[in-house]
């Protein structure tokens, strides 16, 4: 992972925020490099468990971003998401995760600058907090290992 030690994951809806992040790119708006974006159809697809799973697997911050209330491509998705995500954000401290490490926001397809600002602000919030190390306690789940294959086998060998 580049751009410092922390790892950030963004869950973005395809229709607004992902397009907003695209617009920030098209406009060449410089941003910190810690963020890794996962594209989803809608914030309504964001299972709170997915956010918690990300923290467990080593994320130091998770950002969820979707369409503004009323602008959801699926009309209602972000309203349900709003309730789920707000509850999740209130539970963060209970789980032992600094509440600042989780954020949800609404960014439209035209708000490229706002996306760049949000990523920058979020990254700057997490940097001083450092690594979360939620996964620290337990060993990694054995049957979860699907990482790099040993060495760099040539295609021929793999065939």
């Amino acid at each position: 992972m580049s751009g410092g030690d922390i790892k950030l994951v963004g869950f973005l809806c395809n229709w607004c925020s992902y397009a907003g992040a695209d617009m920030a790119g098209t406009s060449r708006m410089a941003q910190p490099a810690e963020m890794r974006i996962v594209r989803l159809p809608c914030t309504g697809r964001v299972n709170p468990l997915l956010v918690l799973k990300a923290f467990q697997e080593g994320a130091d911050g998770v950002l969820v971003s979707g369409c503004h209330p009323g602008d959801c491509h699926y009309n209602e998705g972000n309203y349900y998401a709003h309730r789920r995500l707000e509850l999740l954000s209130r539970m963060m401290a209970v789980y032992g995760i600094e509440p600042e490490r989780f954020r949800y926001t609404w960014i439209s397809a035209s708000e490229g600058a706002r996306w760049a600002e949000t990523v920058t602000g979020f990254t700057e919030t997490i940097r001083p907090l450092g690594r979360l190390n939620l996964a620290g306690g337990g060993a990694r789940d054995d049957d979860h290992h699907q990482g790099p294959a040993a060495g760099s086998a040539s295609p021929a060998e793999k065939r």
Binding site: S2, D22, G25, T26, R28, A33, I37
Partner: peptide, 27 residues
């Protein structure tokens, strides 16, 4: 995998951008 709008266009450091692109590809 979006390594242009979400990577090459918003970063200037080749090392950082390349590492990020590798991450994105592994995703």
């Amino acid at each position: 995998v979006n390594i242009r709008e979400h990577c090459s266009w918003i970063h200037s450091d080749m090392e950082v951008a390349t590492e990020k692109a590798i991450d994105l590809v592994s995703m």
